[in-house]
């Protein structure tokens, strides 16, 4: 007993104060790649190496359409290494959760010269890919929201609908003493009947489709669904095939998408807080209506 106490005291507090303070992450962490579309001379090398097809090209005549989908990106950094024109950089940004799938997609159109090198940017559709809401204020509001609106705690039911278990490792880490998600009043629960939020990692396999639907059906209204990770958003590297249906939104309406492979715990937290906001809105509307 004394030994346990001694160890506890000597360890002290280890919980980090994210999101009240910015995440302390290693300077080696690979976040999302950023693209300098004006500077980009040739998208082919990046598209060629990208393992999941997050960067894709379609050439028509003398024009090229480049699509970048952060919903497929696994933050591997190969595109930056392959692009000799310095137009692609790996950043440390990871707070990418969003309610709109289309917010994760960038497109650009280039004129091409005879060597199929970019010869002028014709159009770029650049959503602001950054935290949709200020995460810090999200965090501060979360406790209040949970207390006032939910009148208790936020209950999350997690379902692995076919993942490689990478996302589960990070979701489990949310409960460790470092991230300690319970400090916000957020709990993971066993029964979907007690849950307000369904957190789903994918890809959704043919064999998990029914179990996922049943779990969702068992939850009381109002409820929100969060798709976790590249596979949960889009099927990721597995895509769609005879055994995989692809992203969670192929099966259920999704409220928030959290990119990453897997999303780090802070990214999960940001997505969960964002979804909490949606849930609060829905509760509010239900009561008003």
């Amino acid at each position: 007993m004394f030994k346990i106490l001694q160890k506890t005291l000597s360890t002290g507090t280890v919980t980090v104060n994210y999101p009240a303070q910015p995440a302390r992450i290693s300077d080696r962490f690979r976040g999302r790649p950023s693209f300098d579309f004006e500077k980009w001379k040739d998208a082919r090398p990046a598209a060629e190496v990208c393992p999941t097809g997050a960067i894709s090209l379609s050439d028509k005549g003398d024009s090229r359409r480049v699509t970048v989908d952060y919903g497929l990106c696994v933050f591997c950094g190969l595109c930056a290494e392959a692009s000799s024109d310095q137009a692609v950089h790996i950043t440390q940004e990871f707070e990418l959760a969003t309610a709109e799938r289309s917010n994760l997609v960038l497109t650009a159109e280039y004129a091409l010269n005879a060597d199929r090198i970019h010869d002028g940017l014709r159009r770029v559709d650049r959503h602001v890919v950054k935290a949709e809401t200020d995460v810090e204020s999200l965090g501060q509001k979360a406790r209040g929201t949970i207390h006032k609106i939910l009148g208790r705690s936020l209950a999350i039911r997690e379902v692995d609908a076919g993942s490689c278990n990478g996302c589960e490792l990070e979701i489990v880490a949310l409960n460790n003493p470092i991230y300690d998600i319970e400090r916000f009043g957020i709990h993971f629960v066993a029964s979907p009947r007690h849950a307000d939020m369904l957190l789903v990692s994918g890809p959704v396999t043919r064999n998990m489709e029914l179990a996922l639907l049943k779990t969702h059906r068992a939850m009381a209204e109002p409820k929100v669904v969060v798709a976790v990770g590249a596979c949960g958003i889009s099927g990721g590297i597995f895509g769609e095939n005879y055994a995989s249906l692809g992203g969670v939104d192929k099966v259920l309406p999704v409220d928030v998408y959290i990119p990453g492979c897997p999303p780090r715990p802070q990214a999960l937290l940001q997505g969960i807080l964002l979804a909490l906001g949606r849930l609060a809105e829905r509760l509010h509307n239900d009561r008003a209506g």
Binding site: D160, G162, S163, T205, M208, A211, S244
Partner: peptide
């Protein structure tokens, strides 16, 4: 095999 996602087959395509 609930999480079977065609991995070995997919290896033949990449």
């Amino acid at each position: 095999f609930y999480t079977h996602k065609g991995t070995e087959k997919l290896f033949e395509k990449l």
